[in-house]
Amino acid sequence: MMIVKYAAAAVVAGILSLGAAHAQEGMVDELRQPTLDTLAGKKVIFVPMSMSFDLPEGWAAIMQKEATRVGYTLDIRDANWSTDTGTRALTQAITEKPDVIVVQNFDVASYARTLKKAEDSGIKVIQVNMKSSYQTDAFVGADWYGIGQYAANRMIEKCGKASGKSGKIAIIQGPATAAASVYQLNAISETLKGHDDIKIVSSQTGDWDQSKARGIAQTVIQQNPDLCGIIGFWDVMDAGTGAAIQESGKDIYLITSGGGNKTACQGVENGTFKEVISYDVEGQGRDLNNAIKVLLQSKEAAGAVKFALYTPNKIISKDTMSTNSCWDLDQLKK
């Protein structure tokens, strides 16, 4: 009798197991295909400041891979370092009625009216890394205030009264009206309030130009032999700042920020930079893709919902650097 009971139990267990296996094989993800159908055939236009440097090259590579994977198109309209060219590219894009425009602003003002015109025309707009004064559907990019706050705090640590050093620091900005300059300067000013032991002896615009940054740094170092630190606003520009420091033979603490290209890690390794605050182009590319897909699936009108995805800061220094701290464009394109 016991043998019969065990046999019956085994049969039931087998049937249940078989049923569960069939249920698992037959399950359908009811969201997947409708999502892919919604994305297929859509059009995205990307208008960067220029395709001649690491940030937009990295974003474009990541966006293109995802566009190919899920079936929408990505067109690139290069502003080639010209606000006039960029405005014409945006105006032309509006006439083509893409579903989404991704734009990298030169400054807080130049594209503001054109971006509003795009949204008024029913086109959803994502701003990447450099904000306009006009807030569109989405912003994906660096937390400039957080970057400036971190850099200022590091100057307090490295050059303040407790360090035994002069407290003299310099700032080399980008263009004065660029979001990276506007928001970082605000953060630095706010953070240094009440720290009388820190003195900003120079704050000048390097205009993203390596040669100009080098010249500024050379002059400031000559005028302030006891200069303790420099905050730079972009690592590509600040390769010139670092070269001026190395030429001087002085131990000046240079902290800068950038997208985390492999040259940032190389700069830390060879001593050009003490620290790079990376806003991580790889992470931004993923966030851009997610923002694009959310907006393409959303039934809300252009401009109806506004959100931001700020990039977490990644600190690259000799103490924190690892094999995956920086990215390589050739690898991103694979």
Rank of each mutant, 00 (worst) to 15 (best):
V12P: 10
S257G: 11
R154A: 08
T85Q: 13
D235N: 11
V11C: 13
G229D: 05
V11Y: 12
E30K: 15
K212P: 02
L90D: 03
G260Y: 01
G26I: 05
K131W: 03
L185T: 05
E247Y: 15
E300R: 10
D328L: 07
K97T: 13
V220F: 02
V140H: 00
A304G: 11
K212W: 12
T114C: 14
S82E: 04
A170F: 06
N80C: 12
K212M: 02
A264L: 08
Q184G: 00
T73F: 06
Q149T: 00
T73I: 12
G71W: 09
A142S: 15
A8P: 14
M49W: 06
I126E: 03
K250S: 09
W208Y: 12
Q210T: 12
I15E: 10
G194I: 07
A10C: 15
T85F: 03
R88A: 14
D120H: 05
D29G: 11
P56I: 04
D251T: 08
Y134Q: 14
D251E: 13
G164H: 00
L254W: 13
V140W: 00
L309V: 13
T241V: 09
K116T: 07
D330C: 10
L31N: 12
S189D: 06
R88W: 08
G206D: 00
Q24L: 14
T83A: 13
M1A: 15
D29V: 12
A40L: 09
Q210Y: 05
D319R: 11
M1W: 12
G41R: 07
M49N: 09
V108Y: 05
H195C: 05
P225Y: 08
K334G: 01
G174T: 00
G206V: 00
K124D: 03
W234T: 00
S166E: 02
T177S: 06
R214L: 11
D29E: 15
D207Q: 00
Y310M: 07
S133R: 12
V236S: 15
I45G: 01
K43W: 03
K314F: 06
Q135T: 06
L39D: 04
N289A: 04
K131A: 04
I156E: 12
K333M: 13
S163K: 02
D251M: 04
L288Q: 03
K274Y: 13
T73L: 02
K274F: 14
G271H: 09
G267W: 09
E57C: 11
G242S: 06
I216M: 07
S202F: 02
T114L: 04
N129L: 02
K161W: 09
N270I: 14
V182N: 01
Y6A: 11
T114G: 05
T320S: 13
G160D: 02
G41P: 06
N153W: 13
K193F: 08
Q184M: 10
L18Y: 15
I292M: 00
G229Q: 03
V294E: 05
V281C: 10
L90N: 00
G303C: 04
R113W: 09
L296K: 03
K42D: 03
W81E: 14
N224T: 12
L31I: 14
N153H: 15
K334Q: 06
W234A: 06
A151S: 06
K158A: 07
I94D: 01
N186C: 02
A60H: 09
T205S: 11
Q222L: 15
A243W: 10
K333G: 06
G229V: 04
Y6E: 15
M51I: 12
M27V: 15
T68C: 10
I169W: 00
L55I: 08
K199F: 08
D84P: 03
N80H: 15
A118P: 14
V268E: 02
